[in-house]
Write a protein that binds this DNA or RNA. Structure first.
Length: 583
DNA sequence: GAGTTTGAAACT
DNA sequence: CAGTTTCAAACTC
């Protein structure tokens, strides 16, 4: 897949020259885009979700991660963030590499085709507007784009809360952001995105446009940098296949080249490669199981549940928990998690949320350095940026099997865990919460690696965003306008901690060079504003006193500290998890 | 593929 | 709030 920038002549450097550059060829050869089978992302909005809950911890993204204490790395993040074309940020294309030959072979096929169309739209747009920066001169504004274009708005659903329900969807919804050419972007997406989203009390619901896709196409802006960044981590940490390492090698080869054009090229290629990685990471715990089965399968590639008694209306059902409808390919019995039972589904979901407001919240959160700071441990040794939101409660599995949600998610146990005999390879409860978890590949258990390799990719599931979360005042959610929790973006990038990519001085150099200082500062300031935004009104305690702790929210460090002229980047409502109707 | 184990979710 | 039950995924054979 090409990015729009590829047609750009950077600093007078012809595209052809860039394409002939060693790194371009090298990385291009590394790109698995052509070889990786697209994992249907139906029902996987969880994995694509931006709503990995991130405690709003000021500055955490820059300091918390062991591997990224170097400020220059932050700049790399910014560079990556900035470099990714808004078209990509704004839609799913980053998660949907070209799949020209994708067959519409069943329940998942439509969604795939839709995605393809969407990407086609982007390609088209690319040719129309080769220089996205020109059109988005103000990068922060680029981040403020409206998540939902008109087309999407027709399909999206809204959170139930009154204060926010009208902020995102519907044809009459106000355009909430200043993206100058949002119309064009919307048009672009109109050409592509088709999603079937469950309408949660959507006042402007328009069901007529529901597509026939049986697998939900994840909320279009949901993945992106999260997955982009995660992809590095995932691949590097969890898989034998280490693209980032290869990128690093390529970058080293590229080290002699300097200048923005070169840097731009590097980042372009990184983005390009990320597309494949993102693709590889479109999975959920449930889906993973299917990955090993899906080779050569079509429809069956969609994840399925096997519920027998829950009617797929409880969190036992992963489909339901993920906020998607069950597929026909599910082997569930007496399933109510289907479009025809939409009301039931909604009611049930509401009920569950009434019990536990974050029941549908991501299970894996971006932990911050607050615990680290509190523990007085050198932050440089604490890469444990990701933790299970509630922690596990394992007693027999030693947190080394997928019974353990932490382990399953590829994250270390934390102080929130009540596990016994924790041997979590990603970080033991009593240690990793505070002490650096310099997880190298060798540190990850062979079991886990084997498991993950069997599933094609290692995946740190990013559970679905939920209406609950989004019912919170948006300004308090660190969710970017493209449905990404900005801190998470960075933390995902941080999460790429193991990635040697970011250890590449050359890359840092290149990435840094991409940003003008003023722009960088502006971006950082905006993001910091977001980070400072508290999510204080998320009930951290479930009504039934279940463990729903949101770590460190009480930390004084989390005290919101708004700056003057606070720019609310979160002017749009992220797409909600979709219950994907299917046949 | 059936049976077992496991721990989250749900219930009391 | 704690203990118990239910449930479905993960795992084993």
């Amino acid at each position: 897949m090409e990015t729009p920038q590829k047609t750009i002549i950077q600093n007078g450097t012809p595209v052809s020259k860039l394409k002939n550059s060693p790194v371009f060829n090298y990385i291009n050869n590394l790109s698995p885009i052509n070889s990786v089978r697209l994992i249907p992302i139906a029902q996987t909005f969880g994995s694509l979700s931006p709503s990995v809950y991130t405690p709003p911890h000021k500055g955490s993204r820059f300091k918390s991660h062991t591997y990224f204490s170097d400020p220059s790395k932050e700049l790399v993040e910014e560079a990556l963030l900035e470099t990714i074309p808004p078209e990509i940020l704004k839609n799913d294309c980053i998660s949907t590499p070209p799949r020209r030959a994708a067959a519409n072979d069943g329940s998942c096929g439509d969604g795939e085709t839709d995605l393809q169309r969407m990407c086609d739209g982007n390609v088209k747009r690319k040719s129309d507007t080769p220089d996205w920066e020109t059109q988005f001169p103000d990068t922060p504004e680029m981040l403020i784009y409206d998540t939902l274009n008109d087309s999407e708005a027709d399909r999206c659903f809204l959170p139930a809360s009154s204060d926010s329900k009208r902020r995102s969807c519907g044809g009459t919804k106000p355009r909430l952001e200043p993206v100058s050419n949002s119309k064009e972007l919307a048009d672009s997406l109109h050409r592509g995105v088709r999603r079937r989203l469950l309408d949660f009390e959507m006042p402007y619901k328009q069901t007529s446009e529901k597509s026939s896709s049986s697998c939900v196409v994840p909320p279009s802006t949901v993945l992106h940098l999260n997955a982009f960044a995660m992809s590095f981590k995932d691949i590097n940490v969890g898989n034998e296949y280490s693209l980032s390492g290869n990128i690093k090698a390529g970058l080293q080869k590229f080290e002699n080249e300097t200048g923005e054009a070169a840097g731009q090229s590097v980042v372009e290629e990184v983005q390009k490669s990320s597309l494949a990685l993102v693709e590889m990471n479109q999975s959920s715990p449930k889906k993973k199981r299917l990955k090993s089965e899906q080779a050569g399968e079509g429809e069956s590639a969609c994840k399925r549940c096997h519920c027998k008694k829950s009617k797929c209306l409880k969190l036992y059902c992963e489909c339901f928990a993920a906020g998607v409808y069950c597929l026909e390919s599910c082997s569930c019995v007496d399933c109510y998690n289907k479009p025809i039972h939409e009301d039931t589904v909604l009611a049930t979901r509401k009920q569950i949320e009434s019990r536990n407001p974050i029941a549908f919240a991501p299970k894996v959160i971006r932990n911050t350095d607050s615990s680290i700071m509190e523990a007085g441990v050198d932050a440089s040794k604490t890469p444990a940026s990701v933790r299970h939101k509630r922690g596990c409660n394992c007693r027999k599995s030693n947190c080394v099997k997928k019974y353990c949600e932490c382990y399953q998610s590829g994250v270390g146990c934390s102080i929130n865990c009540r596990c016994e005999g924790c041997k979590n390879a990603f970080g033991k409860k009593d240690v990793s919460s505070f002490v650096g978890m310099d997880i190298k590949q060798d540190d990850v258990s062979e079991t886990w690696k084997t498991q993950q390799n069997n599933e094609l990719v290692r995946y740190v599931p990013l559970p679905p965003s939920t209406p609950m979360l989004l019912r919170q005042p948006l300004a308090q959610l660190p969710i970017s306008s493209n449905n990404m929790l900005l801190p998470q973006q960075s933390q995902h990038l941080h999460g790429a901690s193991g990635s040697s990519l970011y250890e590449s001085q050359s890359f840092r150099k290149q990435g840094t060079s991409l940003l003008s200082h003023s722009r960088t500062e502006k971006i950082i300031e905006d993001i910091e504003n977001l980070i400072q935004s508290p999510i204080t009104n998320i009930n951290a305690v479930s009504p039934n006193s279940k463990r729903v702790s949101l770590p460190h929210l009480d930390s004084p460090e989390l005290t919101p500290r708004r700056r003057n002229g606070e720019r609310k980047l979160l002017l749009s409502i992220p797409t909600f998890p979709s219950f994907a109707p299917h046949h």
